[in-house]
């Protein structure tokens, strides 16, 4: 029992001694070797950041029953990490007549105004297979990506909830200009012809984007 207490007291004393010894040693050495250096922060705001992507595109949007139509749009994106980005799109197209309208003279299901389609959406993309490609002696950065999101499609005086998924290719011409080619499927449900009908609308477009 006695030896146990003795041992404990000795260990405690030793620990205290070494602790104070260490502490003393550190403060003394600190003063001699490493004076209190001010740590400076790097101000990242001074650097040009290129995380925002802005661009325009043109392509073809096929709207089920309404043919394939020219589509024009704009996009605004933000690179969150090297893998993920978010993107907002706004596009517009003028729809053609349905086959029924074409075959039945005098029948028009939609007015000219109602044939104007506008969509806007927000999606999350993931960059896949980044790499360099070579053209002659030049190398270009490029990657594929998958993207999916949801938004709104407006035509025939009604708004439809639309989700989309697709993929594309981003080819960097320089650090801040990229060529984009996208294929997307916009899925929505409408009741224009009486019964609810789920339709898939394929879109292919190509455009340029700038990074800011």
């Amino acid at each position: 029992m006695e030896s146990w207490i003795q041992r404990a007291v000795l260990i405690l004393a030793a620990a205290l001694c070494s602790a104070t010894g260490l502490a003393q040693e550190r403060t003394v050495l600190d003063d001699v070797i490493s004076p209190d250096l001010e740590r400076r922060q790097i101000d990242e705001d001074k650097l040009d950041s290129e995380n925002i992507e802005i661009g325009f595109y043109a392509g073809v949007l096929s709207v089920e029953d309404f043919g394939s139509n020219d589509v024009y749009g704009a996009r605004l994106g933000l690179a969150i990490t090297e893998d993920f980005f978010i993107e907002a799109n706004l596009g517009t197209a003028k729809l053609q007549a349905t086959t029924f309208e074409d075959l039945t003279p005098g029948v028009l299901l939609l007015s000219e105004d109602d044939r104007k389609l506008i969509y806007y959406n927000l999606g999350l993309g993931i960059n896949l297979f980044p790499g360099e490609i070579y053209l002659g002696r030049w190398s270009f950065n490029n990657n594929l990506y998958l993207i999916g999101g949801a938004g709104n499609t407006e035509f025939a005086d009604t708004e439809y909830f639309t989700y989309y998924f697709g993929g594309g290719w981003r080819l960097f011409l320089t650090d801040w200009v990229a060529l984009r080619i996208d294929f997307r499927n916009h899925v929505m449900e409408h009741e224009l012809f009486g019964e609810p009908k789920k339709i898939q609308n394929l879109e292919g477009h190509m455009g340029l984007t700038l990074f800011f």
């Binding site: 650097l47 969150i80 990490t81 360099e132």
Partner: peptide
């Protein structure tokens, strides 16, 4: 060579050498 973990590394800057940081993209 490009901003991504999979790209080729083409040069090593050694201790005490200087670097100028001038642009960022993500991390």
């Amino acid at each position: 060579v490009e901003p991504g973990r999979g790209y080729a590394r083409f040069h090593a800057v050694e201790k005490n050498e200087r670097l100028r940081l001038f642009k960022t993209r993500t991390d």
